[in-house]
Write a protein that binds this DNA or RNA. Structure first.
Lengths: 140, 140
DNA sequence: TTTTTTAGTTAGTTTTGACTAACTTTTGAC
DNA sequence: GTCAAAAGTTAGTCAAAACTAACTAAAAAA
């Protein structure tokens, strides 16, 4: 509802809420803090902001949930993360580093660059299968 | 001399000093501020830090110069910028956006990712010339 | 059921990096 | 050579995002 733009750090918190809910069914303050390497009060403050923006819901002393809008935004952010991680892995970056670097890149890249990366990654999948097929043919 | 790690913002300031010196022969506070879209007092503060770290030299009320060490560090940062910008342009991103996004990426990517990007860009040059040659042959 | 431990919250501090306002030096027009 | 404009500096404010310390609620163990 509130169209105020998210800061990088709030994007991270929102994304982590989403990831923890996908992984564990519930996003606890303690786990969000551990996953982002911050202390619990930092999470609490971030949740206050996200609540103000109408992106999360939380009853005192319990897990954090996403609103419809929060769901929508978090999904977008996570998709961006997945795209970038896959892209870096295709470049030959190790999974752990790809994850970490994707996490930084996802907040700063322009729509144009994200689009081009998408263009690069998508046909890559097709080409790489074709190439594999050719290699198989050639080697027999 | 001082091995304290530069923050992202100090890296930007140092890089801009270097770029302005390459472009104009002199890096004025006013121009640094304009180029980074900040006000002059922000530049002044950043220069105080960079002076403390022994990366720049400046006599009061005059242009900023680089120390040996500052030169070395600034060159590294600028090379990273050039690498990333070239990379994005190869992906099809427009020059202006490539410049802007490179500027953000240059502070956050791991050495591993930078290395892979370098691997990707370098052979690309060779292949693209070969490909062009082939296309020329095929079309005649 | 009481108590202890764990999880969550609140209040207040710190650091970074921007800003404005006010002041000083330098430059350049006259 | 003087004075106005431009450039640079200094001091102090503000916001974001982390932290610690101290408090409260909930859950688990006794």
């Amino acid at each position: 509802m509130d169209h105020t733009k998210l800061t990088q750090s709030l994007e991270d918190y929102l994304e982590m809420v989403h990831m923890l809910r996908l992984a564990n069914g519930i996003a606890r303050v303690k786990d969000i803090a551990a996953a982002l390497s911050v202390k619990m009060p930092s999470v609490a403050k971030a949740m206050v902001e996200l609540k103000k923006m109408g992106l999360v819901r939380q009853e005192p002393y319990s897990g954090v949930e996403l609103t419809e809008e929060g769901q929508r935004v978090a999904t977008m952010i996570l998709n961006r993360h997945i795209l970038l991680k896959g892209f870096l892995i295709k470049l030959g970056v190790s999974e752990a580093i790809a994850d970490k670097d994707a996490c930084c890149m996802e907040h700063i890249l322009s729509a144009e660059t994200l689009g081009k990366i998408e263009d690069f990654v998508k046909p890559m999948d097709a080409i790489s299968s074709v190439k594999k097929a050719k290699i198989v043919k050639n080697t027999k």
